[in-house]
Design a protein around this nucleic acid. Structure first.
Lengths: 147, 147
DNA sequence: TATTGTTATACTCTATAACTATA
DNA sequence: TATAGTTATAGAGTATAACAATA
């Protein structure tokens, strides 16, 4: 693959991110509408996607410094969104798991986000929606091959 | 267009956002690598996209509270990234414009982001890159019809 | 000696109310 | 009276270094 082709594609991907952000998925707007701070959302979504994890794992992957994990997990525990439990193999490690309340929270928020998306694209013609679906699943399929 | 179709498409769009974020464009990671805080980046990019703007306009559209704009603009001025000037028609209004240094900064950052994107997709086969380009421009074209 | 998680602390970012100057 | 921008201030989020417990 030629370098210019790769460069053009990365330019298109950058434009795709900007367009998605501006037209249908404003990250900041979503976060402001949530009842809990962004760092809590990140931790919950991380656990949902990666399963039970140690505090260090979460911190490393979410780029949150370890000391700041303590108050975040404290609050999530007090809100009954996660539980701490000891790792049976290494007594230094605390593992974090989602509660059923957290799973319900995620489900509800995803519904809200999907409703917002539906609204934004509902102005498109039936034909455009057809094409959009085709191209979106096309991109997802290929991204699935990375990593 | 049937509601179920719209729902499926919004689900796909949600998955597209998640996949883009996880596979090739980690928002937090990008921000951490920048030499200036996120709020400054947002203001600069807003001005790049929307042209000279009043402080209230910027605050409203970026969901930053007005009082917090003062120190942000102060710092950007001291870093020689923006200038303040009076609106000729309304003496209450201060308008903000980007300096040439800011334009260069944006150009450099966009280059870095595109290089990162190139690296991430360079593992794909020539054929997959071809398809990816096709679908990405397809999505961009249709998004262009919104708003 | 290295790693896990915590404490302490200072710094930045943010939200709210109250102020001034212009309209 | 309403709006633009500011000041003051308290709260939330973050980064860094130093520490105790465990490996």
């Amino acid at each position: 693959m030629s370098d210019t082709k790769l460069n053009n594609l990365s330019k298109d991907l950058y434009n795709l991110m900007l367009n998605l952000h501006r037209k249908i998925f404003n990250h900041d707007e979503m976060m402001k509408n949530l009842p809990i701070p962004p760092s809590h959302v990140k931790v919950i979504l991380y656990l949902k996607h990666n399963g039970d994890s140690s505090i260090s794992e979460i911190a490393k992957n979410l780029l949150i410094s370890k000391p700041n994990m303590t108050p975040i997990i404290d609050k999530l525990v007090s809100e009954n969104m996660v539980n701490r439990y000891n790792d049976p193999n290494d007594r230094r490690i605390l593992r974090i798991e989602l509660t059923s309340k957290a799973h319900e929270f995620i489900k509800k928020q995803e519904e809200m986000i999907k409703n917002t998306l539906s609204e934004k694209i509902s102005v498109l013609s039936s034909e455009d929606l057809e094409y959009l679906g085709h191209h979106v699943t096309g991109v997802i399929d290929i991204l699935g091959k990375i990593k």
